[in-house]
Structures are given as C-alpha cells and as structure tokens.
C-alpha cells in the first residue's frame, strides 16, 4: 500500500486508507495553508460529494477558501481536533487530516509530491 501523500491541483492532499482505494483522508497542502495564513474556521457541510464539488470552507483571518472534494464518495468523518483547533493545520498541514471520505467511486487527477511541487511553481 502506498503511504505517501498525493495532491490535487486545487491544493488538497489525500492519503489512501485501504488497498482498494475506497477510503481516504483529505487535508490541505502546505502551499495552500501558507497562502491562507492563520486558519480560524473549518466548515465541512456535505455528506455525499461528487469529485470537484465543494466540500466546505476553510477560513483564515484574512480570507476564505473553498475545499474541493477530489472524490465522488461519502464524507464519513470530520477531524474533531481540527474543528476545535483549526490552527493545527497551519502548524503541521500534512499531519492533520480534515475529513475522511469512504465509498470512493471516482477521483480527480492526483499528483505525487514531486509533480505537485512543479505544478505550484507554474
């Protein structure tokens, strides 16, 4: 099972949770968190999502950013730690997942860290 993070072009990271690739954690890339600044509010208000659809909002002191779903599937869990202390995402963006998606049926294009790093520079 691949354990490394994969990335979307809308700056989410994903981590597969099973071999079948039907379950995954979603988080926000370091690049995105650095651009947002101090994150103060996380809102995930969807249950059934289509790939590319908005899952919720991430708000920093300065700005609001949409969080998009890389998958068609079901939001099964939102990370309580992050809801209660959104600033954790700024400290360790790639260690704190925001939500868990299960019953994944379809996926957006995913990139390895190396590929993603090249993307953001474009």
């Amino acid at each position: 099972m691949e354990n490394e993070l994969l990335f979307t072009k809308t700056h989410e990271w994903i981590k597969w949770l099973n071999e079948e690739k039907t379950e995954a954690y979603i988080g926000l890339s370091k690049y995105a968190t650095e651009n947002l600044g101090d994150i103060v509010y996380v809102n995930i208000d969807k249950e059934n999502v289509e790939k590319g659809e908005q899952l919720g909002d991430i708000e920093s002191v300065k700005a609001v950013s949409d969080l998009f779903s890389p998958f068609t599937g079901l939001v099964s869990q939102v990370n309580e730690k992050v809801l209660n202390n959104p600033g954790l995402i700024n400290v360790q963006p790639e260690d704190f997942w925001i939500c868990k998606i299960v019953d994944i049926k379809d996926s957006e294009e995913l990139f390895t860290k190396e590929e993603y790093d090249k993307l953001e520079k474009e």
Binding site: G37, D38, G87
Partner: peptide, 8 residues
C-alpha cells in the same frame, strides 16, 4: 508587509 510569521 501584510504579515511576517503569523497575523495572530
């Protein structure tokens, strides 16, 4: 400068 390390 809009911020240095962290606005908060």
């Amino acid at each position: 400068p809009i911020q240095y390390s962290s606005l908060i």
